[in-house]
């Protein structure tokens, strides 16, 4: 397929995944804060600051706003057009990319993303948000899930679809690592212990932010501990948002595109991805905590960025550009 088209499929998919993940992060953290026994502004602010840090949006936020209030953060991450990571921006970008590849994707996919874009643009989204932010985020996530389903059900599972998979799993692995990292940025309220109530509530919020609560409970017999949650979100081989699962899918899509056997590599993207994949296959959560979870997640994000760059260089860029 055309290099430009591959690039657009890749980014279309990244933006969809990013919007979905941001919607879920806002939903969960808003609910988490409502559960705080202590609603003192400094505590609430500290929490939202941690969320902004995970989304790498803090600097811009500080430029645009005076202080951190829950409403202002929701507004900023959801609707602020000046924010390049805002949900409306991601959806608009996804749609713009879809528009350039309309003849490659199915009409159903196009109409699905276009409807979501119009929903956010014409005031209906805003009205739902004003009624109930939680319902609004759920509705949005549903629409984006519908896009994923439509994609799988209506598009040829050829190169274009594989580039969509690349974008989806790269962004998703990145997003899971960030959500997990929230826990590093949130401090426990004073007097709370690791493993205490507040700690467990926070880990549960992390799981919910990855739609992983129910799946986790099926594998861990009711106990929520930081160790096990991290193991689940980093290393579980069947949970579709774990970093390992995503990297495995990434590797598999890369090899479908190149027709190269798995376990071998034919380009830099495959080499980097294969290295990451095997390190995730053969590590333990004990080793991860030994490095330090935050450091490990930081490194993982860096390696994902390198893979993304290598994909672009291998497939989407030409020397004359």
């Amino acid at each position: 397929m055309l290099s430009r088209v591959a690039d657009s499929c890749f980014w279309l998919s990244r933006y969809i995944e990013r919007a979905e993940s941001n919607a879920r992060i806002l939903d969960v953290n808003m609910q988490l804060i409502l559960d705080f026994e202590d609603q003192a502004p400094p505590l609430v602010q500290r929490h939202w600051r941690a969320v902004l840090a995970t989304l790498e949006d803090q600097e811009l936020y500080n430029e645009l706003s005076q202080e951190i209030t829950p409403d202002a953060v929701l507004e900023f991450v959801t609707f602020e057009k000046k924010n390049p990571h805002a949900i409306v921006t991601s959806i608009a970008n996804a749609r713009e990319n879809a528009r350039t590849v309309r003849e490659q994707i199915s009409s159903e996919m196009w109409e699905q993303i276009n409807r979501t874009h119009l929903y956010l643009r014409d005031g209906r989204g805003r009205a739902d948000f004003n009624d109930s932010p939680i319902d609004f985020y759920r509705r949005l996530v549903d629409q984006l899930h519908a896009f994923q389903g439509t994609t799988d059900a209506t598009m040829l599972h050829g190169d274009g679809w594989d580039f969509i998979q690349l974008g989806k799993y790269l962004e998703r692995a990145d997003s899971t690592s960030r959500v997990l990292d929230i826990k590093y940025h949130i401090l426990l309220p004073s007097g709370e212990q690791v493993g205490g109530n507040a700690d467990i509530t926070q880990w549960m919020a992390v799981l919910r932010s990855c739609s992983g609560m129910e799946a986790y409970l099926k594998t861990s017999v009711g106990q929520v501990t930081g160790w096990q949650v991290a193991e689940f979100l980093v290393l579980h081989d069947e949970f579709p948002r774990s970093i390992r699962f995503c990297v495995d899918q990434l590797d598999s899509a890369l090899h479908r595109i190149s027709d190269c056997d798995r376990g071998h590599f034919s380009n830099e993207a495959e080499r980097l991805c294969g290295t990451l994949r095997s390190s995730l296959d053969y590590t333990t959560i004990g080793a991860v905590f030994q490095t330090g979870l935050h450091q490990f997640l930081d490194q993982t994000q860096l390696r994902l960025i390198q893979i993304a760059d290598a994909i672009t260089q291998t497939y989407c860029q030409w020397k004359d550009e």
Partner: peptide, 22 residues
């Protein structure tokens, strides 16, 4: 069922036109 291209997707070599694909 054919490709849509923009000028940047095409290049000319030896008086032949090519599109840049993956």
């Amino acid at each position: 069922g054919i490709e849509i291209v923009t000028g940047n997707d095409l290049l000319v070599q030896d008086a032949r036109v090519f599109m840049k694909t993956t």
